[in-house]
């Protein structure tokens, strides 16, 4: 554990240094890819607090992304409220909804795949609800009007502004995630994931903790939703509440290593550049080729490295250490 703390600090430091000097050297296209990497890393880290630490696998996290995106964008387009404020209102809204959903599900003992199903249903219901409200754009969605380079309205000329913004968000998210996991709150979440009855018997208020994890995760995801809307300047119900974003939010955490601090970041860092570059090579001809790649990687990951990239890494590391310290003492298994 001690090593982990130091490693986190070093890695965050490295990310900071590399991150902040990158736009000086990279072209717009590579900055765009970096924005995507950071954005999905951020979302996966947010999902991971509920899905990875607490072990409650939400398959409808786009619900919160959509709430964030729609709240800030609606307030911006209708009353001209800056997304810097709208973002927090969206976060608060998502937090309230998350708390309500969490309370309902966990109060009634919804678990495992059934929790996944409830969250899918909620996100899908949101798609249809938003589609049928014309005043917030209906099926057409909402466009974020371009007002020129206006940092006070979260709009930047060129991509570096967005890049720095999501870099800071990701660093804060990773820091928060690594901070949470080494305190009581984090350990208790893990204990719920590992064995809920045992945790409850040892004084862990599992209901309250699961709701808290849902709220934190929902708020973070919603903040990401605002960034998404500002960066892509256009949102519609399927694009932010649909099953597509729901899967993409958790995909990188699963592939990188679920329940670990760095897994979600590693997953996005490895997979997105490959997907984006191969899309560049294939040209726009193959709609769906990128998701096809994600699906294939997901299936292969589950079959051949069920604990993700970091799991595999630790396995090799673990074997190596075992051999060093106690010969072949694996008969305990």
């Amino acid at each position: 554990m001690k090593i982990q703390i130091k490693k986190s600090t070093i890695l965050i430091g490295l990310l900071l240094i590399v991150g902040f000097i990158l736009p000086r050297f990279a072209g717009e296209y590579y900055i765009h890819i970096s924005v995507l990497v950071l954005f999905y890393a951020y979302m996966a880290v947010s999902w991971n607090i509920l899905g990875g630490y607490a072990g409650q696998h939400s398959l409808g996290h786009a619900l919160f992304m959509g709430i964030g995106a729609y709240t800030s964008t609606y307030l911006f387009t209708v009353i001209g409220l800056t997304p810097w404020i709208g973002m927090w209102l969206g976060g608060a809204f998502a937090g309230v909804i998350g708390g309500f959903v969490g309370y309902l599900c966990f109060r009634y003992g919804v678990k495992g795949p059934y929790f996944a199903l409830v969250t899918i249903a909620l996100a899908e219901a949101a798609v249809y609800i938003v589609t049928n409200i014309p005043s917030i754009g209906g099926a057409q969605g909402l466009e974020v009007a371009w007002t020129g380079n206006a940092p006070q309205l979260m709009q930047f000329d060129g991509k570096s502004g967005y890049y720095y913004m999501i870099l800071v968000m990701t660093i804060i998210a990773v820091w928060l995630s690594s901070w949470l996991i080494k305190r009581r709150f984090g350990y208790q979440l893990l204990s719920i994931r590992e064995n809920e009855d045992a945790a409850e018997a040892l004084g862990v208020n599992t209901l309250r903790l699961k709701i808290q994890a849902t709220v934190i995760s929902a708020v973070m995801t919603a903040l990401g939703g605002t960034f998404f809307a500002q960066y892509f300047t256009y949102i519609n119900p399927r694009a932010v509440f649909g099953e597509g974003p729901s899967v993409q939010i958790l995909l990188f955490a699963i592939i990188g290593g679920i329940g670990t601090v760095w897994g979600p970041v590693v997953g996005a860092l490895v997979l997105i550049p490959i997907a984006e570059l191969s899309r560049g090579w294939l040209g726009g001809t193959f709609a769906g080729a990128q998701i096809l790649l994600y699906g294939t990687v997901l299936v292969l990951t589950m079959l051949f490295m069920p604990n993700g990239i970091l799991g595999l890494y630790h396995k090799f590391l673990g074997k190596f250490q075992n051999r060093q310290s106690d010969g072949g003492k694996s008969e305990a298994l």
Binding site: G51, G55, H57, L59, G112, P113, A116, V247, I254, I258, F286, A287, G288, A289, I291, L292, Y294, G295, T296, V297, L298, V299, T301, M302, L303, P306
Partner: peptide, 22 residues
Amino acid sequence: PPINQIMLTVGLSLILQNLALV
């Protein structure tokens, strides 16, 4: 674990859907 089974079949659905799309 259930999450792996879920993600595997989700992966299958992504593959089939996007194979059809391609």
